Amino acid sequence: MTGRPAGERGVDSPDPWVADHIRRLVATGGQAREGVDDLLLTTRGRRSGLLRRTALVYVRDGGRWIVTGSNRGADRHPAWYLNLVAEPRVTVEIGGQAFAARARTATPAEKPRLWASMVAAMPSYRAYQEGTAREIPVVIIERVGDAG
C-alpha cells in the first residue's frame, strides 16, 4: 500500500450517531462538544481497502494522542481498531488540521496510566469496560513526517 496525503477524506462511519458527530466536528472546526476533545481518524479498511473515517475522544500524552476502542462497551472491537491493527498508517484531523500518523495498541505496561487518562476524560469508559468481557484497547497515535 502506498502512503496517502494527510487530509485525504475517507468514507464516514455507517453508524448514524458517529456520522452525525463527524458532520458536527467538521462544521464546528473540531469543537462539537464543549469540554470534550474529539478527533477524526481515517484508517484503511482491512478487507475493502477503502479509507474509513470515524470520530473519537482523545487525550494528549506529550506529543501523542491517545484514543480507546470502547465501541460503547460492545463485545467486539470497533472496525476502525481492527483496521489500524492491520495497517497502522492513519490520518488524523484535529480542529480542521490533518496530518499523517502511525497508530499502535498500548503495551500492557503503558496501558494502566493511559487508560486512567481516558477514563478521567470520559468516565463512561469505566462502565463500558465493566460491561464487556473484552479488554478495551488503548491506542497511541504519533505524528509522522513533517511535525510543523
Rank of each mutant, 00 (worst) to 15 (best):
G63V: 02
I66V: 15
L82G: 12
N71F: 10
A55M: 01
G96V: 01
R53F: 01
W80C: 06
Y58I: 05
A98S: 15
H77T: 12
Y81L: 04
L84V: 10
A86N: 07
R64L: 11
G73H: 08
Y58T: 01
R60N: 09
R72L: 09
L56V: 10
R53A: 02
R76P: 07
L56R: 00
P88S: 08
I66Q: 10
V67R: 02
G95T: 01
R60T: 07
P78L: 03
F99T: 04
R76G: 14
L82H: 12
D61E: 15
W80D: 09
A74I: 07
G73E: 06
V57W: 12
V57C: 13
V92D: 00
F99I: 15
Y81S: 05
G63H: 14
E93K: 00
L56G: 06
R53V: 08
A86E: 12
N71A: 09
V92L: 05
W65E: 04
T68E: 13
G73A: 10
L84K: 09
I94C: 07
A55I: 02
G73L: 04
I94W: 03
P78V: 05
A74Y: 08
W65L: 15
V67S: 13
W65A: 07
I66D: 10
A98K: 03
S70Y: 10
Y58M: 10
A55V: 07
T54V: 11
V90I: 14
D75E: 08
V85R: 06
N83D: 11
G63P: 11
A86Q: 11
I94K: 04
N83L: 02
V67W: 07
V92A: 01
A86V: 12
V85K: 08
G96Y: 00
G73V: 03
R64K: 14
G95K: 00
Q97L: 04
V67A: 07
G69K: 01
I66R: 08
Y81K: 00
G62I: 11
G63Q: 12
F99N: 09
E93C: 01
V92K: 00
E87L: 02
V57T: 13
V67M: 06
L84M: 15
G62C: 14
Y58P: 00
T91M: 10
D61G: 11
A98E: 12
L84R: 04
N71T: 04
I66L: 14
E87N: 11
V67E: 06
G69A: 14
W65D: 11
V59R: 05
Q97W: 00
V85E: 05
P88M: 00
N83I: 06
L82Q: 09
R76E: 15
T54M: 05
V92G: 02
P78Q: 06
Y58W: 05
W65P: 01
R89V: 13
G63T: 10
R53N: 13
A55F: 00
I94P: 01
N71H: 10
I94M: 11
G73N: 03
V59A: 03
Y81I: 03
V92C: 07
V59C: 06
L84C: 12
N71P: 02
R64M: 11
S70A: 13
P78T: 07
V59H: 03
V92H: 01
Y58H: 13
L82S: 05
V59M: 08
Y58D: 03
A74R: 15
A98Y: 05
T68P: 12
D61W: 14
R89G: 12
N83P: 11
W80A: 13
V92I: 14
